[in-house]
Design a protein around this nucleic acid. Sequence first.
DNA 1: TATTGTTATACTCTATAACTATA
DNA 2: TATAGTTATAGAGTATAACAATA
Lengths: 136, 136
Amino acid sequence: MMEDAVGYRLRRAQLAVFQQFNEAFAAKDLRPTDFAVLLLLSGNQGLKQSEVAEALGIQRANFVAIVDGLEGKGLVERRKSETDRRVQALYTTRAGCDYLEELMPIWAAHEERLIARLGGTKERDQLIDLLKRLCD
Amino acid sequence: MMEDAVGYRLRRAQLAVFQQFNEAFAAKDLRPTDFAVLLLLSGNQGLKQSEVAEALGIQRANFVAIVDGLEGKGLVERRKSETDRRVQALYTTRAGCDYLEELMPIWAAHEERLIARLGGTKERDQLIDLLKRLCD
DNA sequence: TATTGTTATACTCTATAACTATA
DNA sequence: TATAGTTATAGAGTATAACAATA
C-alpha cells in the first residue's frame, strides 16, 4: 500500500542514492549541490547566477552561500557582466576545472554502481525518462 | 550531462511530487510523513514506534515529535506493550481511521495525476520497480 | 550490558521579506 | 517600475549524544 506510493518510493530512493554519493565523495568534502554547480558550469561557462540556481531548483537567496563557498575554495569565480551590471556571470576557475577532472572518475564509478543496481544502462535510461515526466 | 545524473533527476522528481502532494492536501494541514504514518499503521496496528520510524527512514529521535503531533490531534495512540514495558505500540484511533478515509480519495487522485504524467499504470509499476532496486 | 523512547542540541535546507544597485 | 544579487531570519528536516526505564 504505502510501499507502492510513488512519492514514498522517490524519497527512499533519493535518500539511498544521496547517501551513496556522500560515501563516494567522503574524501572530497563536497556536497551533491556543489558538484552539480561545477558540472553544470563546466559545460556552460558564464551562466547568470540566477540561471544556475533556477536550473538546479534552488532559490536565488539560498544559492548565494553556495557560490560563496565555491568561490572561497577558489573553484568558481563571479564576474560582473559588462552588458548588465546587475548580473554576476559564473565561471569555473582553472583550479575548479582541475578539481572537476579529479571528481569525474569518482562520479562515473558512482553512476556505474547505480546502473548495476538498476540492471543495466537500458534500465537507467528508462528511469531517467520516467523521472523527467514527473517534472513538467 | 548533469541533466541525466540519476541523483539529480531523483531530487527534482521528488521535489515536484512532494509539492504536488502538498497542494493536494493543502486544506488538510497534513505533511507527507504524517500521511505515511497513518497509512502504514492502518494496515499494521500495534507496530513499535521504532519500527514505524525505521520503515519510513526516520531516526527514532526525530520521530518522537511526529508521533507527539499525531497524538495531539487525536489521530494516533501510544500504548505501552504488556510484554516489553520499554516499547510504545502505535495504533490509529477511531478518529484517525475516519480521517484516513477522508484522505484516501485525495491521495488516490494524487496518484492518478502521477500515473497520467508517467503515461499509464504500466509505466508507474516500472518506475516503482526501478526505484526499489536503488534501495537494497 | 543492550535496547526503547526521550530530551537537548546543532547543523543543514528551505522559504520569505526586504534591501541595494542597476536597468 | 522591475530585476539580480544580497542579507536576515524563521521554519523544517536531519544527525548525534546522553539520559531514564526496562530488558
